[in-house]
Design a protein around this nucleic acid. Sequence first.
RNA 1: GUCCCCUUAGACUAUUGGUUAGGUCACCACCCUUUCAAGGUGGUUGGACGGGUUCGACUCCCGUAGGGGACGCCA
Length: 485
Amino acid sequence: MDENIRVRFAPSPTGYMHIGNARTALFNYLFAKRTGGTLILRIEDTDQERSTPEAVQVIVDSLKWLGIDWHEGYFGKDEHGSPVEKGKYGPYTQMKRLGIYDEYRNKLIAEGKAYYCFCTEDELEKKKQAATAAGIVPKYDRKCFKLSREEAESKKRNERFVVRFKVEPGIVEFNDLVRGKVSFNTDQIGDFVIARSDGVPVYNYAVVIDDNAMKISHVIRGEDHLSNTPRQILLYRALDFPLPKFAHLPMILGSDRSKLSKRHGETSLLAYRDKGFLPQAVFNYMSLLGWYPRDGVEIKNKEQLAKFFDLADVGKSGAVFDEKKLIWMNHEYMQQLDASAIYELCVPYIRTVDLSGRSPEWINKVLEAVKTGLNTCAEVPEQTKLFFMSAELTAEGLEVLKSGKAKEVLSCLVELFNKTEVTAENFKALLQEVAKKAEVKGKDLYMPVRLGLTGALHGPELAVLIPVLGSAECARRIEDTLKKL
RNA sequence: GUCCCCUUAGACUAUUGGUUAGGUCACCACCCUUUCAAGGUGGUUGGACGGGUUCGACUCCCGUAGGGGACGCCA
């Protein structure tokens, strides 16, 4: 393990885990695994209006489901409901670190690098609107910076205030591990708030304090944070903290190339679990969004992905999330599973099916039979239903059965089923016999059989369906159908 | 609007100045087949545009256009 490489995933617990967030976690994981570094989970819950304890749990559940494990930080709750944290740089939940933020904030104020601001939100809103209307970049006008220390101290006693960081003019330039050299002019940046009126720190400030305190060496996050980086660098400088390396990952986009959101489909990671996707497939697919392994082989497990992962190979442009390719990849991973594994995974989806009287062996046979056509676990009920019972005959199906020699085919077949146990081996011979007796072949033979047995025009291959059902069940089903003709 | 970032086919991408621009998904065709799939084989589709630099540009530079992100007492 490389003690010097430390990365973190620092989500805020507001609702579900977004796909984009999950991808950030994944790249941090891959990077840590590849370099032998440490992955830390930190909970950024300073937005008290939106943060919830449930969402904290969702973060842990999401990461665990995806197969991302971490070494340090927040680890969920123990059996008594108390939070579990590991590591010597804790606490790893921001609301438990308030004292630390206060300390540095006071230092910045004492050094004249930050100041109290008493402007009301209404006042600021008006100024902002005026600036926007005039076509100017809205920026705090530093009104309260002009206050003397004494004035500020006296106002503090009976007025609400925030703390603002004083942005010095200049150019901030840094070398992003993904994007190369990026530079900003600080004249675009107003004196931003670092502590709210209730004393709770704001993201751009807290993140710097924590990344420094936790000895983070590489900040790997989404591109939406690129323009926050200069603010943070300014804070690093003001606090005399060593700068970590930055890597800004391209965004994950929806089909119209805008930021992936609800209207593009599911954006919650766990929604994909619920839709029957395998975590290995989701992991693999997401790893390919904005990154590509050097050898060009796309299907790779976690270990192989980590072996190839390199920030230098991360792309710069946004990547569209394409569920079709995810489905294909999931299909590939489904094929690697044996029937009993599929059964375990599909339990939540086959609750609707009556399994009473079905042996596990028989169910496995069914799953083995339909496996090659399975894209997701959620498809299991649909794909297997004709094994459990036949479908209601449609008008079209009824028509086929009433025409030609369909009835004759079925009668012959029942007779055979009654005296022979059908197997995968003798299935073909059995049908040949029917063909000879009824003098039909091809579709005229198979379609009535299919309809007689399943009631449906489409379905699993008869050669696999019939042996799984067995003679008795086949005969019973066909007799049932004959009664309807 | 301002700043920052991006731009190889419908999607993900390879290419790091010389390739018939390669791979994967999707799509199409054919094969297999009793149906739907799955599988096999093959195929269509691409360097945003305009200028340079160079013997030679997808690749380097400039501009234009388009897209994205950020501009909160959200993260």
